[in-house]
Design a protein around this nucleic acid. Structure first.
Lengths: 323, 323
DNA sequence: CTGTTAGCGCCTTCAG
DNA sequence: CTGAAGGCGCTAACAG
């Protein structure tokens, strides 16, 4: 009822080796035997045993998506959730499953252990810093892909730039930035874009660090109001942060966008439905995750920057529209 | 540099079989050899080869989370996303990855194919109907778990009941229900709870079918307003549906909750931030998903009903609070 | 309790 | 281009 390669070979009148060649790696085979094997396989409803195959090929069975952060509940972050799901769907046809794991900031030992895991088909890393990517254990090279700076990344400089330009265009002149954590490689580009624009406009920089929680977003907003009370716009590099800031501003009796405009980053589902609706930048997270996953499997995925396109909604001031 | 079981056995002065017994299944072994093996393994940094193990044990390497629905983009549904992520995290320690797959309503053939997949460690099914669970291919029995009615389920009768009781308690008397699709097993319990309460209160039932999209939620709300213009409350069995209804009501100039109260179901992150903030019922999705995943692996997971606890926010009328 | 003997199902040299 | 033989690393059945 369940047939193996041997049976297919027998029916096709060839050796298992030949059958294997046509069914798997597409090794050399005459047109005749190829046809015979294919026919036999078809007729028997042959399905290769993925585990046996993976053992023989020394190729793993799952990729792990490792997210580095100081908080373990980063695994519930909307970005992580979306990316994980996208990978799980994208790798299904490859007979490869995905595992999700949290890594502390100091994760050298964990990576070492991962590199010794022969069940690992590939690793997708998020939340890395420059250091980490440069010093991957040898066993991980060639089967690791990163999401964010240095890997499958979004053109965050463009996205943040567009958002800030818009703030400037609608008359904001005292624009503060809630940046990402400094240990994160992906934090650099947005800060760079911000600084470039602010300086070009002859304005002074106002930067506070946040993370990906709304709590910190609220705290950051309060810090900004305290330190620079005349701030008229806050750009956050995460939607959760922006939402937290929105809450803090409301609590402080500051009107958005009248008094202070706010922008986020990533366009999580929440962004459009929040009140007021959040202006942010939208990203093809599913595509990014799928690209990273395939790269982790060793596929040659062209390294490109994914688009970061601004979405202007209520919190931005000016009239709502998409750039 | 990478050691196998054989080397561990050699160092411990026992046979590979004995080493295997202590390292894996915890088969019989004397204290002495157990200690020796453990020591050797420790010292060598031995890590078993998961794929070889899975091949020998005839146990698969991944579970697939199959979601049955008429729309393929159900895979982006917040519940699916959350559940997938939770499984990916929960199964990591088992060396089992998760794959995500969409199934059409008519999926007998797909299940047949799945049952032939020897890489499959287990199947988690969502969106099933009674029929489906009863007629699983033989190869899937014992390694399939369902999420929802008949599997790892939420006490939706209690949750919906609590929500509707509250609507009644704050004075609503013309309460409509936007139920789930009729092909879905999980749709039954909420409808039952609704009917029971409405009848007990001597009211008339007003039921419309929806699905898990906000579009259909909006359409359903419009249908309700058309058919029963005096409706003063709408209970939806999904947050997305409720959010869609909210939009439709706003567009129709109906005030929420003053004119019509609204409740959702599931407490997606959006619910609390929407405006007005949505009253709904909250569920331990991560726990549910993890339980289902473990059950799919063959673990004996006690079948229990997970709590569905109401969260009263703005859209419910009355004063906001948690029951 | 332990070692020996066979596989698990496929892939991959290596001759021919 | 093809077949035979051996191995991937571990587990399971069976004597002892």
């Amino acid at each position: 009822m369940r047939y193996g390669l041997a049976e297919v070979a027998r029916r096709a009148g060839v050796s298992p080796a030949t059958a294997s060649r046509v069914l798997s790696g597409a090794g050399p085979a005459s047109a005749a035997s190829r046809a015979a094997v294919l026919a036999a396989a078809q007729q028997l409803g042959y399905q290769p045993h993925p585990v046996a195959r993976q053992l023989a090929r020394k190729t793993g069975t799952r990729i792990v998506f490792a997210v580095r952060d100081n908080r373990a509940d980063i695994l519930r972050d909307p970005f992580v959730t979306r990316a994980t799901t996208a990978m799980a769907a994208a790798l299904d046809p490859y007979d490869v499953g995905v595992s999700l794991r949290h890594l502390g900031l100091d994760c050298a030992a964990d990576l070492e252990r991962l590199s010794a895991d022969r069940g690992l088909a590939g690793l997708v890393l998020a939340g890395h810093d420059r250091e980490l990517l440069g010093h991957l254990p040898a066993g991980l090279r060639g089967r690791t892909a990163a999401i964010g700076a240095g890997g499958a990344d979004v053109d965050s400089a463009a996205g943040v730039g567009a958002l800030i330009s818009r703030l400037h265009a609608v008359g904001r002149r005292r624009i503060a930035l809630i940046a990402g954590p400094s240990w994160l490689a992906a934090s650099a580009a947005p800060v760079g874009a911000y600084l470039r624009l602010v300086r070009a406009a002859g304005l002074r920089a106002r930067i506070v660090r946040g993370d990906f929680t709304s709590d910190r977003g609220g705290a950051a907003a309060r810090a900004i109001l305290t330190r620079w009370p005349d701030t008229d716009a806050i750009a956050a590099v995460s939607d959760a942060t922006a939402l937290g800031a929105l809450g803090a501003l409301a609590a402080a009796g500051v009107r958005v966008p009248d008094d202070v405009a706010v922008t986020g980053f990533d366009d999580i589902p929440l962004a459009g439905t929040a009140c007021p609706a959040l202006s942010t930048a939208t990203h093809p997270v599913e595509e990014i995750a799928a690209a990273a996953a395939r790269a982790a499997l060793g596929e040659a995925v062209p390294r490109r920057l994914f688009p970061s396109v601004p979405v202007f909604r209520d919190t931005c001031g000016g009239s709502a529209s998409t750039a």
